[in-house]
Computed example of a mutant assay.
Amino acid sequence: MAITRYGVEGGQGTGGQHLPFSRAVEAGGWLYVSGQTPMIDGEVVERGIVDQSRIAIDNCLKIMKEAGYGLEHVVHAKVVLTDARYFQSFNKVFKEIFGEHPPARICLVADLVVDCKVEVDVTCYKP
C-alpha cells in the first residue's frame, strides 16, 4: 500500500514557525487531514467564531481538493472549540458546509496552542 504525504515540507505557522508535519496523509483510500485553524498565510484571522469556523473548514477543503477528495468523502470530523458557547454558531457553519454529506463528528472544548477559537480536522475515504 502506497502512502502519499501532502505538504511534507511543512507549512508556516504563526510568527513564521515551521510546522514539522504533513498537511495530510493518504493511504489505502483514506485521507487524514491535519488539524486546521483559521489561518491565512501563516497568520490567524482575528474574527468571530463564525468566520473562524468557515476559514478552518475551508482550509481542510483546500487540502482535500489537492488530494482529489470532496465533501462526499468526509467520514469523520474532529472539532476543538475554546469555549462551549461557540457550539451553536459552529454547528450552523458546519451544517451549511456539510449539509447533504454530514460526517460522523466529535466536538470538544479545550485550549489550543494557537490563539484562535476553533480547530478542525477531517478523515476522508475514497475507494
Score class of each variant (00 low, 15 high):
30 W>H: 13
30 W>E: 02
112 L>I: 08
77 A>W: 03
61 L>P: 09
99 G>P: 00
124 C>K: 10
98 F>Y: 15
95 K>F: 02
71 L>D: 10
12 Q>A: 08
47 R>C: 03
104 A>V: 01
2 A>M: 06
41 D>R: 05
125 Y>P: 02
35 G>W: 02
124 C>F: 06
124 C>H: 08
3 I>A: 12
82 T>H: 03
63 I>H: 07
17 Q>N: 12
114 V>R: 05
1 M>W: 04
8 V>G: 11
5 R>K: 10
69 Y>P: 03
52 Q>W: 04
101 H>L: 00
100 E>P: 00
107 C>I: 15
90 F>C: 04
77 A>R: 12
101 H>C: 02
60 C>G: 09
95 K>D: 12
68 G>C: 05
98 F>R: 12
48 G>R: 13
45 V>C: 02
75 V>P: 06
23 R>T: 11
96 E>R: 03
51 D>T: 10
18 H>N: 07
127 P>C: 05
122 V>H: 10
122 V>R: 08
36 Q>I: 01
121 D>I: 00
109 V>R: 11
101 H>N: 15
25 V>Y: 03
72 E>K: 15
126 K>N: 14
116 C>M: 02
24 A>H: 09
85 R>W: 01
107 C>M: 13
6 Y>G: 11
1 M>S: 15
53 S>G: 10
110 A>Q: 13
1 M>Y: 07
23 R>W: 03
26 E>I: 01
124 C>T: 06
10 G>S: 06
56 A>Y: 04
42 G>I: 01
105 R>H: 10
78 K>I: 04
99 G>D: 11
64 M>K: 07
118 V>N: 08
32 Y>V: 10
76 H>E: 12
56 A>P: 05
81 L>W: 09
55 I>T: 10
72 E>T: 07
120 V>Y: 12
10 G>L: 01
22 S>W: 00
93 V>I: 12
26 E>P: 00
127 P>W: 07
2 A>F: 04
16 G>Q: 10
67 A>P: 02
116 C>V: 03
1 M>P: 04
32 Y>P: 00
36 Q>Y: 01
56 A>T: 09
60 C>R: 05
64 M>Y: 06
64 M>W: 05
87 F>G: 10
20 P>D: 14
8 V>Q: 12
34 S>Y: 03
98 F>E: 08
7 G>W: 02
14 T>V: 14
68 G>I: 08
115 D>E: 15
7 G>Y: 04
18 H>S: 14
92 K>W: 03
79 V>W: 05
49 I>N: 14
40 I>C: 01
64 M>P: 07
81 L>R: 09
114 V>Y: 04
67 A>R: 06
30 W>K: 14
59 N>T: 02
4 T>A: 08
4 T>H: 10
45 V>S: 04
111 D>A: 12
21 F>A: 09
79 V>F: 06
20 P>K: 13
63 I>V: 15
101 H>Y: 15
73 H>C: 09
49 I>Y: 14
76 H>R: 11
35 G>T: 12
111 D>W: 02
79 V>Y: 07
124 C>R: 11
66 E>L: 05
51 D>Q: 13
30 W>Q: 07
122 V>L: 15
29 G>C: 06
106 I>D: 14
113 V>Y: 11
70 G>N: 07
85 R>L: 07
27 A>W: 03
96 E>T: 09
56 A>R: 08
28 G>S: 10
8 V>N: 09
119 E>P: 00
19 L>Y: 05
33 V>A: 12
123 T>S: 12
